[in-house]
C-alpha cells in the first residue's frame, strides 16, 4: 500500500459556499418575482436604492460578521450607532469642524468595542451579557447628551447626504454606498488574506484548539469587538448623513437587524463559517423585502418583520441541516 487517499468525492460546489448560494438565489428570485408583479420594479435603481437606504446597516452588519465568525455576539451595535449620531450632531451644532467630529466618533466606537472585547476576554464573560451592558450604557449616554432630536446643518454633512454619484445611464448611488462597499472589500481582504482573519475563523471553529495551536486567541477576540465598535460608529456616521440628525431613538433594534442579515447571509451563529459576501446578500434581502412591501402598497410595514422572522426560521433550519450532514 502506497500513499493512501482517503478523501471523499468532492461535491461540485464546496459545502461552505452553499448558504451564500441559497441566499443569492433567494435574492434573485425575489427580484424576478417583484419585477413580474410590479411595474417599474425591474429597474437597476431599485437595487441601488436598497443599497442607498441600507448602507449604514451594511457597515454595521460587516462588523457583526467578524464577531459572529468567532462565535460571539455584539448586542451593542444599535446603541453605538445612536450614540454616534448624537455625538456627531451635538458637536457639529457646537461648531466643531466635520473631520475631527468624524475622527472622534470613530474613536469612541473603537474604545467601546475595545473595552467590551477586553472584558469578554480577560474576565471570561459571555459576550451576550457584556455587550448587553454596553448596549444599555451607550443608549443611556445618548440621553445624557440630549433627549431631543438634534438636526445637522453642517455643509459637509449635508453635501455628503445629498451628493449623487452618477453611474451609467441614469443610475446613481450615494457616497455612503461607496463607503459601505469599501468597508465590505476591506473586510473580505482581512478575513481571507491576513492572519487576523484566518485566526477569526479558527477561533470560531474551536477556541480551545486555536489556543493549543498557539494562535493569539485573546488578541483576536478583542480585535473583533473593536472592529465591530468601529463599524458601528461608521454606520452611525452614515446614518447621520442619511437622517441629517442625531437622536437617542435612532437605530432602535438595529443590532437585531444586523444579526438577522448576517445569519440570512449564511454565517453560522456558532462561528467558524461564513462570508462577508453573504452578509451583503443578507442586507440586500432585508432591504428588498421592505421595497416589495412598499411596492405592494396595501401591506402594513410590519409585514417586513413577519417576513424577516419567517426567513430567519428557514435559514436557521437550513444551517442546522448543513451542519448536521457534516456529522
Amino acid at each position: 500500500m502506497t500513499a493512501v487517499t482517503l478523501g471523499r468525492a468532492r461535491p461540485a460546489v464546496p459545502r461552505k459556499y452553499l448558504p451564500v448560494l441559497v441566499t443569492g438565489a433567494l435574492l434573485a428570485a425575489m427580484f424576478v418575482a417583484g419585477g413580474v408583479r410590479y411595474e417599474g420594479f425591474a429597474h437597476g435603481q431599485v437595487v441601488l436604492n436598497v443599497f442607498i437606504d441600507n448602507a449604514f446597516l451594511l457597515v454595521v452588519a460587516v462588523g457583526m460578521t467578524f464577531v459572529i465568525l468567532t462565535g460571539g455576539i455584539d448586542l451593542s451595535v444599535g446603541a453605538v450607532v445612536a450614540l454616534s449620531t448624537m455625538i456627531a450632531a451635538t458637536l457639529l451644532r457646537a461648531g466643531w469642524p466635520p473631520l475631527p467630529v468624524m475622527a472622534l466618533v470613530l474613536a469612541v466606537g473603537a474604545t467601546l468595542g475595545l473595552a467590551m472585547g477586553s472584558i469578554i476576554h480577560h474576565f471570561e464573560i459571555q459576550p451576550f451579557i457584556v455587550t448587553l451592558a454596553g448596549m444599555f450604557l451607550a443608549r443611556g449616554l445618548c440621553y445624557t447628551i440630549g433627549t431631543d432630536s438634534v438636526p445637522i446643518t453642517d455643509p459637509a454633512f449635508t453635501a455628503l447626504a445629498q451628493t449623487r454619484i452618477d453611474l451609467v445611464a441614469d443610475l446613481w448611488i450615494s457616497p455612503s454606498v461607496l463607503i459601505a462597499l469599501l468597508v465590505v472589500l476591506a473586510a473580505g481582504y482581512v478575513l481571507h488574506y491576513t492572519r487576523l482573519g484566518r485566526t477569526v475563523y479558527a477561533v470560531g471553529g474551536s477556541e480551545q484548539s486555536a489556543v493549543l495551536m498557539g494562535l493569539p486567541v485573546g488578541r483576536t477576540k478583542i480585535a473583533v469587538y473593536t472592529i465591530s465598535g468601529v463599524c458601528s460608529a461608521l454606520g452611525g456616521l452614515l446614518l447621520s448623513f442619511y437622517m441629517l440628525s442625531g437622536y437617542g431613538l435612532h437605530a432602535v433594534g438595529m443590532e437585531l437587524d444586523a444579526i438577522a442579515a448576517v445569519v440570512i447571509g449564511g454565517t453560522l451563529l456558532t462561528g467558524g463559517s461564513g462570508f462577508v459576501l453573504g452578509t451583503v446578500l443578507g442586507v440586500l434581502v432585508l432591504g428588498l423585502i421592505q421595497t416589495i412591501i412598499s411596492f405592494e402598497g396595501t401591506l402594513s410595514s410590519w409585514w417586513t418583520k413577519i417576513f424577516i422572522g419567517l426567513l430567519l426560521f428557514v435559514f436557521i433550519l437550513l444551517q442546522r441541516l448543513i451542519t448536521a450532514r457534516r456529522k
Binding site: R198, Y201, S206, A210, M213, G214
Partner: peptide
C-alpha cells in the same frame, strides 16, 4: 486539537502561513 472548519492546508500551517507584506 485542530479546527475542523478550516482547510487541511490551514490546519497544518495556521499561525506560520507564508506571507508577503502581510498577505497570505
Amino acid at each position: 486539537n485542530l479546527c475542523a472548519n478550516l482547510s487541511v492546508a490551514e490546519n497544518v500551517l495556521i499561525g506560520r502561513e507564508p506571507r508577503r507584506f502581510g498577505r497570505i
